[in-house]
Amino acid sequence: MPGQKRTEILVTGGSGFLGRGIVRRLAEKHPEWHISVLDLHPPPPHLRKCISQFIPADISSAESVNNAFVEYSPDLVVHTAGIVPARRDRYSTCPKQWEKVKGINYDGTRNVLDAAMASGCRRLVYTSSCTVLIDDLDHDYFNMDESFPLGKAFLHYGKSKGMAEAYVLSPKHAENGLIACALRPATIIGPEDTAVMSLIHDLIGKGETNFVVGNGDNFYDWMYIDNAVQAHVLAVENLLTTKTAAGHAMFISNQEPVYFWDAFLYIWAQFGHVPKYRIHIPTSIAWFVAFILEMLTWFTGGSATIDRGSVKDGMRTHYSNNDKAIRILGYVPEVDLAEGMRRSCDGYKKHLAGKAACVQNGHAPHVQNGVSRKFR
């Protein structure tokens, strides 16, 4: 109808890996909507045509976020912005690192939600993470669902995401009219991902592909980017219509848990590498080797692909039950895991080719997601 207000959607972190996919899918599926991006960095040129405006803001700064909402009140916010400590920082328990992660993932979420509520916005889809549970490295999590209690995660990422999720879904905000839900994706991979793939691919060059920590029978969850995007779009549509997802947290994944080390074999094979043999390393020896590697990389200033935290993590089983997302959102993965991993590897091959071309031409390669990224 002429004069009818158009639906306004704000995607925080819309220039990032997951955010870009959500923006593209929303624009394709709902071209009549106005989609805005709030991020520290502007979206790439090809994404500009999908959005009505870019709002530069630092979510860790309440002032910066408040200024973004001064004359803007979206109908719904998709909050994907956050930080995942990369490589050796992923398993760090350093207090200084905690303040940085908490400042973005928890305080940043508070800033976004408080500013949105003050502007009159009452709908929010929060990108939480399966790490709210599994960043407790002392336990396995078989077929985990939303009935599993939180509060045991001690790694910075999962702890901060759990705190932020609790803030978003607090009864206080629901009483004030907030209609919100939280999605807990598994490890996300895709053609534009460089963080997860780089960790796995680096093992080839370092000659570390022959080793399996423990007996190798632990299961692990993955999620292809298109499926993560689909779940978020379904959540947006739900909160704008039936609102049956309001107040809920939901695990999402590819619903295809696989042997952790076999997934690595499949990925390496996409790059033409097949280990000639496999050596199962007992836990005690793996811990000692990881400690030595940590020391070596500390002296050299590099980043360890294997450390004590990753050893512990690589021996555990954790995969989720998606029944709640299936029931409430109608979520069904679009792309199976084998195809998703193949596409992700093809994307990383292009990334490596681009880096090689830059070096050959004497240019410094552009580093994407070099410090941190949103992958869970």
Rank of each mutant, 00 (worst) to 15 (best):
A153D: 11
R122P: 01
L169Q: 08
F260K: 04
L337Q: 10
T297E: 15
P333I: 02
Y72L: 00
K100V: 13
V101H: 06
I179H: 12
I285P: 12
I189N: 04
A338Q: 06
A353I: 09
A353F: 14
E294V: 02
R278T: 07
S310P: 06
F142V: 10
G302Q: 08
L26F: 07
L150M: 12
E32D: 14
P74D: 00
G347D: 09
T241R: 13
I188L: 11
L265I: 04
V367N: 08
G347P: 07
N322D: 01
Q255T: 04
R6C: 06
V101A: 07
K100T: 13
F148E: 15
N67K: 14
K96A: 09
I134D: 05
E63A: 11
R88H: 15
L137S: 10
H273P: 10
I188N: 11
V132L: 11
E28H: 14
F291C: 12
N143F: 09
R308T: 11
G340Q: 07
A115R: 01
C50V: 06
A357Y: 04
G272P: 10
E71S: 13
G370D: 02
N238V: 03
R327S: 14
P74L: 00
D138S: 15
F375A: 15
H232V: 04
P333S: 02
V101I: 11
D307G: 13
D58W: 06
P43V: 11
I279N: 01
L155F: 14
D336A: 03
I134M: 06
E256R: 09
A228M: 05
L178P: 07
A86L: 11
R343N: 11
P257A: 04
Y348W: 07
V274P: 05
V371P: 04
L47G: 03
E175A: 15
G13Y: 01
I189C: 08
Y224I: 02
E256T: 12
N322F: 00
E63H: 01
Q230C: 03
C181E: 01
K206F: 12
V359W: 05
H280M: 00
C130P: 00
T297R: 13
P149N: 14
L150Q: 10
S284R: 11
I204M: 13
